[in-house]
Design a protein around this nucleic acid. Structure first.
Lengths: 212, 212, 212, 212
DNA sequence: AATGAATGAGCTTTCATTCAT
DNA sequence: CATGAATGAAAGCTCATTCAT
């Protein structure tokens, strides 16, 4: 009944899952196609049949991880927030959720940027494009909320977005390291203190740290 | 009187310089010991005699790059600053200077963090330690200046330092990308606009972006 | 009445045709069973079902090509010739005709001899036998005509046959190269100059090149 | 004392000898670089260091075999012959000598022509050129002797050269097969009957097989 | 009977490491 | 001490062959 398809989606998924995990854990070069095949419980040959070569497999893993987030992503998290702080907190909480849910995908995307230099130029462009698109999406989602703010003279929405970008980016890395060091954490609630800490800091960035 | 060292310091230095440059440019795996030996104008055998294996060589290059900055570093840049903004600007200007002066060392240290995962656990710890030490140094240098500030209730020096850390870190990456894209830039003056932009942003972080 | 054969003759024929063509064009190793199956519009599995393995397929292709000529061959071409020259010309013209009609089969047989060494000893013997049989047939066909000649003292029919064999063999290769280089040639008439040239040469061999 | 050279001529020679022998015996594809390395008593890696890749190794083997004959070749064999028959016999005797002395080189060159189709186009051109050069040399050597002959009307030197070419070529193959089947033959004298047979045939070609 | 997805042995090639000189 | 020729384990990839469907 289950006709064998030219590409078995279950197998392809297993390969991608294995690729995502191993590339994320070990990086591009130290990960061997053999390993991925073994972890996916398929033969080496099949990996090459489905993905042509190691580089394409890496790119496919990256795309799959990205797609994963793109399909899962809940824009309302950004859109239904009362103010900037609430939005960032929602977004961060959401990102942590994703990180808990899809840790390998998350890690792969986080490290992909630096592995670029090890890929052929053509693939680098592809990775680059993906990251730009992601960044654009985030900006697009945040823009309407920031637009409502009353900025001090000399301050602009763009400035604030850039600064917030640096902070959240740094914070996401912090959280990632934290989660890597505490594998027992499985629920978003356990991360609430960190989230609140970020909230406080962002609030202070909005209103200023310094008296007077 | 001085015991003749079995190691030729000039050759060792050349090896490290070559290693720093090539590891920085290409990453760990794609850099071959052959290349390093050739660029250092020594034999491959000598590289292994001095550094045991490729991994140790990488670690030595990292340490050397770090040392380079540690020796060169001018603490007065941090200490002789009137206020926080001035200090950060001075520090950033100084970092850009270093980046222009020692681009390979700078890039190596910037990418080292992500190459960690490709090293054996023992080496990872070493790299980790180096980064922590660096971070601690920066904090130590900044602490006295931040201590003078009058913080709003709920805000702490540690909070501000952390936030500033994220921002400067993000900004350093931005500058690095900028410099990589504009190799014609050789003087710190040409980077002044970016530095001023960072200053503005940090000022706004101190006092707040939002009206009221 | 006629037992239903488990083998579909049409499919088998397609496989053999494809095998003949591809083996002739590319040689044994560079030709993949995949290609043959695809060109024959059957599945790879069927190829193995019908021919056991690649080597047997090659042998079958060879046999089929040989059979092709054996069935088609018109003995009257040899038998109804007035004299030796006429016979050789008739035979050569006939061979060119076959070459134009069945180029793949022709090329396969021409190259088979040298591909022998790449086959297991048992198959080599088979190929060898086929070539000997072919040679014997040619001799057999020529013998009655040569028997009528009046040989000089010291000359024998066998000598002449052998010499003619070398010449026609060399000439067939020449023609094959010529046809490969001129794919626009499709009619025997276009080859007439070469045939006449061969005739002249054979005539000279019979009567001698040298004055006196 | 024996300084290790960047290319050890003894090793290189061993590799080439092994390559020549194995490529000659087995053909291009069925010969594995592993085998050649083993037979040459060097590591696989060294073969690639010296010859870049398998194809280059094949070409090097071919060139070496060709060179072997070119350096060894004794033109006087052709030049100091009283008449055509004597020349051909001398040349053939000489070729058999070479074949006995360098059987692998001889076989490699004999089979190279047909292995062409298995090589990349660029290498095909190289092989082609080598064969043309060889053919040209033979023609050049024979021309002066043939020029002295008195040809019958309708016969030309070129015709005779071509015919002789076919015959000697066919005969060389015959001899090669004979030697392959009789490995106990090591001296040229043992081949004398075949040589005399060829002489007889060529004489008959000159003067004609047929009475009147 | 027919398919073609799946397998894995085996190939070429690379490069960290060794060691004779 | 210094060299770089030599090594061979291990990588990516191919393709004849198998076998579940």
């Amino acid at each position: 009944m289950t006709k064998r398809l030219p590409e078995d989606p279950a197998k392809k998924a297993r390969m991608l899952t294995a690729a995502i995990q191993l590339f994320a854990e070990q990086g591009y070069e130290p990960t061997h196609v053999d390993q991925i095949a073994q972890q996916a419980a398929v033969s080496k040959g099949l990996v090459f049949k489905y993905f042509t070569n190691k580089e394409q497999l890496y790119l496919a893993a990256l795309t799959a991880a990205n797609q994963q987030f793109m399909t899962v992503i809940d824009r309302t998290v950004w859109q239904n927030s009362a103010d900037l702080s609430a939005m960032i907190i929602n977004a961060t909480r959401y990102k942590i959720q994703l990180q808990l849910q899809f840790p390998a995908e998350f890690n792969l995307l986080m490290t992909a940027f630096v592995h670029q230099q090890q890929l052929p130029a053509s693939s680098q462009a592809y990775v680059q494009k993906m990251f730009v698109a992601n960044h654009d999406l985030t900006s697009e989602l945040m823009t309407p909320v920031v637009a409502l703010l009353q900025f001090k003279p000399g301050a602009t929405a763009a400035d604030l977005l850039e600064v917030i970008g640096y902070i959240t980016n740094g914070y996401i890395h912090k959280i990632q390291r934290y989660l890597a060091a505490h594998p027992e954490i499985t629920k978003i609630e356990q991360m609430e203190p960190l989230i609140q800490d970020l909230a406080t800091k962002l609030k202070l960035v909005e209103s200023g740290f310094i008296q007077g």
